[in-house]
Design a protein around this nucleic acid. Structure first.
Lengths: 245, 245
DNA sequence: ATTGCTCAATTGTTCAACACTTGACAAGCT
DNA sequence: AGCTTGTCAAGTGTTGAACAATTGAGCAAT
């Protein structure tokens, strides 16, 4: 089934990867339960293997484990969002400020991320646009060249993404952020680190404020014109996962 | 020392805690193997539970998992040390710089950490001195009030500690660092954040340089022969675990 | 010396069983 | 009714045993 170079990956890790994808894609909504027996059966693995996979994701912060009560997809509180943006400000801004060396290859990827972001926004592919958005910010972290920091950042971004699955794209305007990204790239490329860091800080504050507002309003009000509020089973359409982070 | 209201902790977590303690205490040396069957037997738990515990620690970075080859205690390279100190600089200095609010209770604990450090150094209890040292730095992180950051920092410090188990106390002079800690506390307490941050930066550079030197010199230690396994000579000379980090 | 093989040891994975919690529902009480 | 108590099903926590897959090392053959 798997055509990797060498299969040297344990099944548990693969299962964790599948679940991670589902959670990040919003297929599994925050708060929804993951019963291990049916899940294991549906993926064709044993219960122990599923438990290992769940353990991985819960340590990553994507799932929350309640002893004897099962696991659920993590749910972010407003406080969590604040914490995460506090971290993003600290990590990203520091990465910019310390970017005395800017490897050409990395800068190329950054530009590609900006282009990709603009392209997908234009074609209204919001889901992919979010990916490019996050890719841009992730590449900024790479400037520091610290693998542990990159892992941590990925984890934090993952948490943020899980919590934001419920955001409806009609609430915000990802397109407005394209110029910001491009400006960030230009400033960085020109070595104007201070200005770049300042703009980034502002950008993050802006994002946090917007998301905070959305969360406060979205608490339990589909007040907007939800076409048909009828049976919303799981894993519905992709209309509800595109916020600019 | 953690007597929670109710013991509601899974066995796997407890086992992970025991192993973590052993690794951090240097009872299990970097590079040493942890065969799961004997380990599980020695702690009186099943193999599956032991696997869960090992999974936890390997995700924390304390153990390294080689597929089909077992797990070993993580071993730090020089590059790893550089990464870790890069992170410490970034995290600790930022915590100081942003410490506009300094809760009295926290400052009290910081002072206690300095005092404890001095006291244990005086009584040549090097192992405990390292604990106070790390406690001091950990409390600095608390200034930021970000739980995710605290967890990450703990993890990083844990890694550092594992790698430094082999350092012999004769190589350095923990006592010399007492005044530095006290000065840091005083500057912080007086709100002289900039000076405090600068001193901290210098302190960390100093620590890294010293540890780097030790590692470089310690590399060609008498390479012991093959694996005389089945016999864990645990908890041997405690003289080899006291470096000021 | 190199190659190929066997073989023991260890890990990866599965399965089945049991103990323990939890939540819900029904029975019994004031 | 309102409340407690008992029972029960469902799900998780843990165990123990089994088998498959992989590795490393010793040994035979070239």
């Amino acid at each position: 089934m798997d055509r990797s170079p060498i299969h040297r990956v344990s099944v548990a890790d693969q299962v964790a990867g599948i679940l991670r994808q589902r959670v990040l894609d919003g297929e599994l909504r925050p708060g929804s339960a993951l019963p291990e027996i049916p899940l294991a059966a549906s993926l064709g693995v044993s219960r122990n293997t599923m438990r290992e996979a769940v353990r991985i994701l819960s340590l990553e912060g994507l799932l929350k484990r309640n002893i004897h009560r099962g696991v659920t997809v993590a749910q972010l509180s407003m406080r969590d969002v604040q914490e995460i943006y506090d971290l993003r400000r600290m990590i990203e801004v520091q990465a910019i400020r310390g970017a005395k060396k800017r490897p050409p290859e990395l800068m190329q990827q950054l530009e590609a991320a900006v282009d990709g972001y603009e392209r997908t926004v234009r074609s209204r592919d919001w889901s992919q646009a979010v990916n490019w958005d996050l890719q841009f910010h992730t590449l900024i972290i790479h400037l520091r060249g610290n693998k542990r920091l990159e892992n941590f950042y990925q984890k934090v971004i993952g948490e943020l993404r899980v919590g934001m699955v419920l955001v409806d794209r009609s609430h915000n305007d990802p397109g407005a952020l394209v110029p910001v990204h491009r400006k960030l790239y230009q400033l960085l490329s020109a070595g104007k680190l201070k200005q770049c860091a300042d703009l980034l800080l502002q950008h993050l504050d802006d994002s946090e404020a917007r998301l905070g507002g959305i969360m406060a309003g979205e608490i339990d009000s589909p007040a907007r014109g939800k076409t048909a509020r009828g049976n919303h089973k799981a894993a519905d359409e992709s209309s509800s996962r595109a916020a600019a982070l």
